[in-house]
Each structure stands twice: as C-alpha cells, then as structure tokens.
Design a protein around this nucleic acid. Structure first.
Length: 518
RNA sequence: GGGCCUCUAGCUCAACGGCAGAGCAACGGACUCUUAAUCCGCAGGUUCAGGGUUCGAAUCCCUGGGGGCCCA
C-alpha cells in the first residue's frame, strides 16, 4: 500500500503514541453520557440554578466523539467532538491537563480522530456549553484526513463510492438516511398495528415473476441449478394467502437487470402487502392512511415540501380512472381506438412521442407517462388500467377489458402499484399464456409461466387486495431528493480500472481459495 | 445505445496554448475564551491513462477509463 505524505505523518503519530504506552486503537471506550444528554443535563442545571460558583455543572463526565474542529490558542485548545447525537466543544487548558499531555494533544491528535475526554461542563464567555477537560485519550486514530471543513465532500463520484466519507463529512446526508429509516419504521408500525404479519420469502428463486423486468441470473453449485434474484415478492406472498395467512407484508430488496438512471437502481427496496377479503378500493383507504401516518411520524404533520411544492397527504385522496385522466390531459380517449394503428395515430396527433411498432398497451402507458404523470403533484389514485398492462390483476366485473388496479401518484411520480388480485386460476393461466406470446415475440420483460403458482391458485386464494410501494421513491419524496442514488447508501457503481481484479474470471484467487477453512 | 458536460495537491476550487496556483487540511512557530479563530513561516502535483499537433499542452485533437445530465 502506498501512503501519501499526510497519511504517513498520521501513521507516525500512531507509533509515537504506542512508544509512550498509549494505544492508538484501545480495546474499549467508556462514556458516561452522549453529547446530547450531557448538553441537556447542563441546560437543566442552569435552568434550576444548580451550577457551582465557577459556573460548572460539577457532575464529572466522560464524553466521546470524532474531533471535527481544532483551534489552538497557545496554552488553550478549543476543539469540537461529534458523536451520533450532537457536536460538543472541548476546552483544553495546559494548566489543567499538564504540560506533557497538553503537548500530546497538540502534536499527536488530529482532525478526524475519535477521542474520549473527561471533565465538567460550563458555559464559555461567548455562550457555548463546553467541556472543561481534565483528561483526554485517543480512541481511534484516523489515518485519512477528513474532507475540507467548510465545503465538505462535494465530488459526486466519491460521495457514492465512499459513502462513509460522505456521511462523516456532510450532515445533510446523515439526515436523509435517518428520515428514510424513520419512514420504514413507521410503515412497519402501521402494518403491525393492523395485524399484518411480516414474512420473508426467497431472494433466490427458481423462476422469477410478479413484475415485468429482466432478472439477474445466478447458479447454485450443489443443486446444479439456475436461480434468479427476485424481481418482485408478489407471487410468493400470494401463495401465503392461499396458505391461510390473511395479512402479510415484506420489505425487501428486489433486483432488476436494467439500466441505471435517476429513477432506477439494479437493487431497490420494495414494500409489498396483501390483505384477504380486501379489494383495491379498501387498499386505497389503507395506502392513504399509511402514507399519512408515515409523513406525520417523520414531520409531525401530514405535509412536506418536495421540489418547491407543498404536498399535503391528508386523506382522502382523489381517485380518477386512468381513462379519464388521459382523456382530460391529452384529449385522447384510448377506448375509442381499439387497434394499435388507430391509437398510435391519435396519440401522435395529440403530440405524444410514440415509437413505430409500440404495442397498444405500451401506447396507453406512454400517454400516461407523457401527459398525466408529471402533473400529479398532490396525492392522487389513478385507477382501472387496461387488462393488457396488468397480467396479475382481476378484471372489473362490468368491464372485462379493464382491471381493478390503482397507482398512487405524488410529486409527479408513481410510488406504487396495486390491485384486486387475480385469484381465478384459469384466467391467470390465460394471462400467463398471453405473456408467453409476448415473450416469444421478443418482449424480454414478459412474465414466464409459473405452474406452481397456478397450482397454488387452484387450491383457492381468497379475494385479496395487494399493494407494492417503492421505498426508495418514497424516501426521495420525504427527503426532497431528485436522484434515487441519493437515498441509497451504497449505490451500484462500475468498477474502477484497478478494481477489475475483483471479478472472479480474472486473477488467480477464486472464491474457493479465499476461504482458509477449506 | 446516442448527445452534451466533467476529471488539476488529502479536500474545495483557479489557471483554458506561455513558470501549475489559492483557501482549508498538513508541517514549523506566536498566541490562555475560540467559533471557517488570527498572525508569521514552510512544504505539498503521473493535471484520469495513452497517443498526437505544437518551439511550447492541464489547456487543442484522437483513443481508452471513471462520473454526471439529457435523450432512447
């Protein structure tokens, strides 16, 4: 490993600490308070006027954190440490610490180091609550210097490739992922409270299904068999409904072998939940209540700002049919154009960009994307999609050309997909066969026929409502981010040239030889 | 897949055909209440890689690589 001058200087300090008997990486830390707790205690004591004559809170404290600022004033040092709760200033005086130890702090401690400091809290002349330090020790020496203190880490590529640097340098990034976690936690609380059972279904699947997408393919050596990484949880979760579990949900990574852009990641997080004896109307009730619960949990009220728009998720949300929404936005009533040619002509006449040869349902989808979707800023449910777009949804009783399906839209994008689940095994078989025809015609995203799923439906699945919510897209909304990668901690990136040795094909070290246990 | 943009010190950025620079960080020093502390001094480069044009290339051209945006 080649070290830069800056790294070598810090490594030398590790050695100097060791020489004088202080480990640079001690086995354990001892803290009596988090920084936030310590500050709260001081505020309380100050409010109750129980501080000592010197203005100190006489409770001795041991605090920990990463050193994020360091101002040397001769015989005094001001430094800030930051733990997971707060930033707190250390006030380090030579006469309190002793000459030798004070020199160590000046010479051997750097920005980025984790330290542990003992002392008592007081308020400085400029009003900042600070720790009057009586002792300080190294907890973990940082060899790499942190990014620039004022601008943080700006380089987008480094922020994604080395998210740990992004997180330690940029407060806003930590905030984003806290909001995301809080939202997921609120979803679990909401569903748990409604007696939904959280379950885990296979990531490795012998046959993929439940969505229109290309899968990742892998291989199990012992079984001598191909597996696919799941593109959706849907078909397994609905098997559980057959088995008598009436309310189930799963929050999990799904994988789709497609391009990467602002709204697509090869691995992403999906919430799916299914409820027996429900239908798409009652599931709309559930979705709007759930989103309102999540937003209120995160922000304290059912409103938030996304890309400059104030969004209010208070139920009930408007519900409009896809046909109405497209008709109003584009002037095209797609039901009046039954053939691909006629609809293509009408769509183009309305100003849509439609490729030659695009099949009828895809043209409808394009009308939705081009005319309707960008304008759905406030929450809305679009309902009743053409059957061709929805091979797993149940037909409307009064219109077999459409299915009971809805998508919730917020902030100009869809955040999910839901329907009254198709539970007629023979209709499901027919839909699979139509998909098979599309596949044979070259549609790589068409669903394969899943005989075991048909078999499950033949045992009987109760009438069921099901919903899928894209957690990453929801997180984008709640954190006001325009890019999926900004709400994914470690987004997929292409190998750098000198990382190509990571691929199993190259180099001599294969997976077998890496394990010393073998 | 196509178009446009981008890659310079650890970090944030200048220089845009004529000596590769600044701030922060580092290093040496002054300073016992600072807040992006201040002040003095000093050091730091495969300008993404390779090739070409040129008296001279970070800069222009070509090829390749990473990243971003837009389009498909």
């Amino acid at each position: 490993m080649e070290l830069s001058d800056l790294q070598q200087i810090r490594l030398d300090k590790v050695e100097r600490l060791r020489e004088q008997g202080e480990p640079a990486y001690p086995t354990r830390a001892r803290r009596t308070h988090t920084n936030a707790d310590a500050l709260a205690l001081f505020d309380a004591a100050e409010a109750n006027a129980t501080l000592s004559d010197s203005g100190d809170l006489d409770t001795p404290m041991t605090l920990t954190g990463r050193m994020v600022s360091f101002r040397h004033m001769g015989k005094t040092v001001f430094a800030h440490i930051e733990d997971g709760t707060s930033r707190l200033q250390l006030y380090i005086r030579r006469d309190l610490l002793g000459e030798d130890r004070y020199a160590d702090v000046r010479k051997l401690f750097d920005l980025g180091d984790f330290v542990q400091a003992e002392g008592t809290l007081f308020r400085t002349r400029t009003g900042e609550v600070s720790l009057r330090v009586s002792a300080v020790t190294m907890l973990a020496k940082a060899i790499n210097a942190p990014p620039e203190k004022w601008h943080g880490l700006q380089d987008i590529e480094t922020r994604y490739r080395q998210r740990y640097v992004d997180l330690l340098a940029n407060d806003e990034v930590r905030r984003i992922f806290r909001v995301r976690a809080k939202a997921v936690s609120a979803i679990r609380a909401f569903l748990d409270a409604r007696d939904y059972l959280e379950v885990e279904t296979p990531v490795l699947q012998p046959l993929y299904g439940g969505a229109a997408a290309r899968p990742f393919t892998t291989y199990h050596n012992a079984l001598d068999q191909t597996f696919y990484l799941r593109i959706a949880d849907e078909l397994y979760l609905k098997r559980l409904l057959v088995g008598g579990l009436e309310r189930v949900y799963e929050i999990s990574k799904d994988f789709r072998n497609e391009g990467i852009d602002r709204n697509h990641s090869p691995e992403f997080t999906m919430l799916e939940f299914y409820e027996a004896y429900a239908d798409y109307e009652t599931m709309m009730d559930t979705v709007e209540a759930m989103i309102a619960h999540v937003v209120t949990t995160v922000f304290g009220r059912p409103c938030f700002t996304f890309q400059g728009n104030q969004i209010d998720v208070t139920p009930p949300w408007p519900r409009r049919t896809l046909r109405e929404a497209i008709h109003e936005a584009s002037g095209v009533d797609y039901t009046a154009f039954r053939s691909q040619e006629a609809l293509q002509q009408a769509a183009r006449a309305a100003g849509a960009s439609i490729e030659d040869g695009m099949v009828w349902p895809r043209i409808v989808d394009e009308l939705l994307k081009q005319f309707v979707r960008p304008h759905q800023i406030q929450p809305i449910f679009l309902t009743d999609y053409p059957v061709e777009l929805s091979p797993l949804a149940k037909r409307k009783a009064d219109d077999p050309t459409h299915v009971e399906r809805f998508q919730p839209y917020i902030g100009g994008g869809e955040i999910g997909n839901a329907f009254t689940e198709l539970n007629d095994p023979m209709d499901q078989l027919a839909r699979f066969r139509e998909q098979q025809e599309d596949k044979d015609a070259g549609d790589e995203e068409a669903m394969p026929l899943d005989w075991d799923y048909i078999n499950a439906l033949m045992y009987g699945m109760p009438p069921t409502g099901g919903v899928g919510i894209g957690i990453d897209r929801l997180a984008m909304l709640l954190t006001d981010q325009r890019t999926l990668r900004d709400v994914i901690l470690f987004p997929a990136m292409r190998n750098l040239p000198n990382e190509s040795a990571n691929t199993p094909e190259s180099g001599s070290d294969s997976a077998e030889t890496e394990s010393p246990a073998e």
